[in-house]
């Protein structure tokens, strides 16, 4: 049986209590808003992308522990990565959060993000962990937003 400790690992508690890269990024090249109506999690992510490189990434919003920690860990991971690397990480993260229990997460790719692997034992919480990733993806895909701040 999986217990609460698998979900609320110390790293997650730490990132909940002091989220990294929290706040607005102004100006930014990309941004998007994410919302999970089930629990009211609201998230705004901001990116500065130059030459396909994520130079800066921040987030703000209100959310549960899992969504806050996930966003915090994500921003930490993505700073300095290329858009292609983001896409690769997005796939790996998504896979980890939704794959069946027996599968080991791709720790080599995910690194610290693997602490969120426990969410798959808590089906109602998977969306909390993936919200920030989807929000960031939509920020990047909406390049019209990029034009806004040029």
């Amino acid at each position: 049986m999986f217990d609460l400790g698998d979900l609320y690992q110390q790293v997650i508690i730490d990132h909940t209590k002091s989220p990294r890269n929290f706040g607005k990024l102004e100006p930014c090249s990309h941004d998007a808003e994410g919302y999970n109506p089930l629990c009211g999690d609201q998230l705004h992510v901001y990116l500065q992308i130059d030459d396909d490189m994520i130079k800066e990434v921040k987030f703000e919003g209100q959310g549960c522990s899992i969504s806050t920690a996930s966003a915090s860990l994500m921003t930490e991971k993505l700073k300095g990565k290329s858009v292609r690397e983001f896409e690769h990480l997005f796939e790996a993260f998504h896979e980890m959060a939704t794959a069946d229990m027996s599968e080991k997460p791709d720790e080599e790719t995910l690194g610290k993000l693997a602490v969120l692997a426990g969410v798959k034992e808590f089906p109602s919480r998977i969306k909390c962990a993936t919200l920030c990733w989807h929000t960031l993806k939509s920020a990047i895909e909406h390049s019209d937003k990029a034009a806004k701040t040029e």
Binding site: D3, C39, G40, I66, T68
Partner: peptide
């Protein structure tokens, strides 16, 4: 203070306690 309702819901569930966490279909109240 310090614990989001959604986390409360999950933690309480592991103690066998079923409560609701969310906006209760009353967003204007929230």
């Amino acid at each position: 203070d310090g614990v989001h309702p959604h986390d409360l819901g999950t933690i309480l569930d592991r103690e066998g306690v079923a409560i609701r966490a969310g906006h209760h279909c009353a967003m204007p109240v929230m």
